[in-house]
Simulated assay, not measured.
Amino acid sequence: MRKDTTSTIKRAERFQIILIGEGILVGGIGGLVVLLYRMCLEYAGKWLNMILEYARQSPIRIAAWFLILIAMAWLVGKLVNYEPMISGSGIPQLEGEMVGKLEQKWWKVLPAKFAGGFLCLLGGLALGREGPSIQLGAMVGKGISRGMDRGKTEERFLLTCGASAGLSAAFHAPLAGVMFSLEEVHKNFSVSVLLSVMTASLTADFLSSTVLGIDSVFQFDIVKAL
């Protein structure tokens, strides 16, 4: 869609307000996606314990579980072949895209990363939620940017917003999401990016806290004197 000079100037005058609105949108959708991903990982961990408890009672069940693991490994391999950008944590891929070295297909990364993470954790592999949540949130931001026909500069803002929202929703850590996305992802600072990133992070944290409560993710007690 062609944009004349007058509309471009008017948009530039209210660019910060537009970014705040887009931050709320990215934070809401990205936070919801990461929240669902987080819940799926929690269920995968619980189901894995139940499966192992059931399988250990019989050698036949153990053999059957190994066959299922092989099938799951085959599925994960197919997902990586379908979209190679889902391998690893996802943060290097995002950083590569921010500097213009990589191009991720958001509509492929989102479902493949989601399904791959669930299958890996269900299979008993060690899997953190930080990198995948950041990549998922960023891909939501990219999808919104492409859907609204934004330019490359504004798309980088929305990628940063999505990364911040992903980390915030994953750990109930809105401030950490802001600091990480500015320092590690965007690698630049301005009032515009700060406002949009803070808006996205707080929106995602609000959704996560509303659904899962405000308890901290990592809980431990010091029962003896240090």
Results as ranks from 00 to 15, higher is better:
residue 26 V to S: 01
residue 215 D to S: 13
residue 152 K to S: 12
residue 170 A to V: 06
residue 165 A to Y: 01
residue 47 W to L: 15
residue 69 L to M: 02
residue 93 Q to C: 05
residue 149 D to Q: 11
residue 162 G to I: 03
residue 61 R to D: 08
residue 83 E to N: 13
residue 98 M to E: 08
residue 146 R to S: 08
residue 40 C to M: 01
residue 147 G to W: 00
residue 136 L to A: 04
residue 16 Q to K: 14
residue 188 N to G: 12
residue 166 G to R: 07
residue 124 G to I: 05
residue 71 A to H: 06
residue 1 M to H: 12
residue 25 L to H: 05
residue 156 R to E: 04
residue 77 G to Q: 09
residue 22 E to D: 02
residue 194 L to C: 14
residue 81 N to D: 10
residue 10 K to D: 11
residue 13 E to L: 11
residue 191 V to G: 14
residue 129 R to A: 02
residue 117 G to K: 02
residue 62 I to W: 03
residue 75 L to W: 07
residue 95 E to Y: 01
residue 77 G to H: 02
residue 85 M to D: 10
residue 200 A to R: 11
residue 54 Y to H: 13
residue 77 G to T: 04
residue 177 G to V: 10
residue 133 S to V: 02
residue 123 G to R: 00
residue 78 K to C: 04
residue 158 L to N: 05
residue 116 G to I: 04
residue 143 G to E: 06
residue 18 I to V: 03
residue 8 T to S: 15
residue 131 G to Q: 05
residue 78 K to M: 07
residue 143 G to D: 05
residue 89 S to N: 13
residue 94 L to F: 00
residue 169 A to D: 03
residue 170 A to P: 05
residue 188 N to S: 15
residue 225 A to N: 11
residue 6 T to W: 10
residue 104 Q to D: 04
residue 46 K to L: 12
residue 117 G to W: 00
residue 30 G to Y: 07
residue 215 D to I: 12
residue 86 I to H: 05
residue 84 P to I: 03
residue 127 L to A: 10
residue 226 L to R: 15
residue 166 G to S: 03
residue 217 V to Q: 11
residue 174 P to F: 00
residue 130 E to S: 04
residue 5 T to R: 14
residue 217 V to D: 08
residue 45 G to H: 04
residue 191 V to F: 15
residue 226 L to F: 15
residue 28 G to Y: 00
residue 163 A to F: 06
residue 7 S to T: 13
residue 38 R to M: 06
residue 54 Y to V: 10
residue 158 L to R: 03
residue 78 K to T: 02
residue 80 V to T: 08
residue 30 G to N: 05
residue 45 G to Y: 07
residue 175 L to I: 15
residue 190 S to L: 14
residue 11 R to V: 03
residue 165 A to K: 00
residue 221 D to A: 13
residue 153 T to M: 10
residue 54 Y to D: 12
residue 201 S to L: 12
residue 173 A to D: 11
residue 65 W to G: 00
residue 45 G to A: 08
residue 27 G to P: 02
residue 202 L to V: 12
residue 189 F to S: 12
residue 9 I to E: 15
residue 46 K to W: 11
residue 117 G to E: 04
residue 151 G to C: 10
residue 58 S to K: 13
residue 149 D to Y: 07
residue 200 A to D: 09
residue 168 S to N: 11
residue 91 I to H: 10
residue 150 R to Q: 09
residue 225 A to T: 13
residue 142 K to E: 06
residue 20 I to L: 12
residue 170 A to F: 02
residue 76 V to G: 06
residue 224 K to T: 15
residue 157 F to A: 03
residue 206 F to R: 08
residue 47 W to R: 08
residue 124 G to S: 07
residue 6 T to L: 14
residue 74 W to H: 08
residue 220 F to W: 14
residue 40 C to L: 10
residue 45 G to Q: 10
residue 91 I to K: 09
residue 168 S to H: 08
residue 156 R to W: 01
residue 90 G to M: 10
residue 160 T to R: 10
